Amino acid sequence: MKRYGYFLDLLKLDIEKYPVIAVVGGGGKTSLIYRLNEELQALGKKVIISTTTHMAYDPMLPLVKSTCIERVPEILKEHGFAAVADIEETSGKMCAIEEAALKKLVPFCDVMLIEADGAKRKPLKVPADWEPAIPDFADVVVSVIGLDCLGKPICETAHRAEYTSSFLEKNLEAPVTAEDIEKIAISVHGLYKNVDHKVYRVYLNKADILPDSSPAEHIVEDLAKQGTIAAYGSLREAEKL
Rank of each mutant, 00 (worst) to 15 (best):
I21V: 13
V23S: 01
V23A: 01
G25I: 08
G25R: 09
G26S: 11
G27F: 04
G28Y: 05
K29H: 05
K29Y: 07
K29F: 05
L32F: 12
I33C: 01
Y34L: 15
L36M: 06
N37A: 12
E39P: 03
E39V: 03
L40G: 08
L40T: 09
L40V: 10
Q41K: 15
Q41D: 00
Q41V: 05
L43Y: 01
K45S: 07
K46A: 12
V47I: 09
I48K: 07
I48Q: 05
I49E: 02
S50V: 03
S50W: 04
T52R: 04
T52G: 04
T52A: 02
T52Q: 02
T53K: 03
H54Y: 09
H54K: 15
M55W: 04
Y57M: 05
D58I: 01
D58F: 08
P59E: 13
M60V: 10
P62H: 10
P62A: 09
L63W: 04
L63A: 02
K65V: 08
S66K: 10
S66A: 12
T67N: 13
T67C: 01
T67S: 14
C68G: 14
C68V: 13
I69A: 09
I69W: 07
I69H: 09
E70A: 15
R71L: 13
R71N: 12
V72Y: 05
V72E: 03
E74L: 14
I75W: 06
L76P: 08
K77M: 10
K77C: 10
E78R: 15
E78C: 08
E78W: 05
E78Y: 10
E78G: 07
H79L: 00
H79A: 15
G80E: 09
A85W: 01
A85H: 02
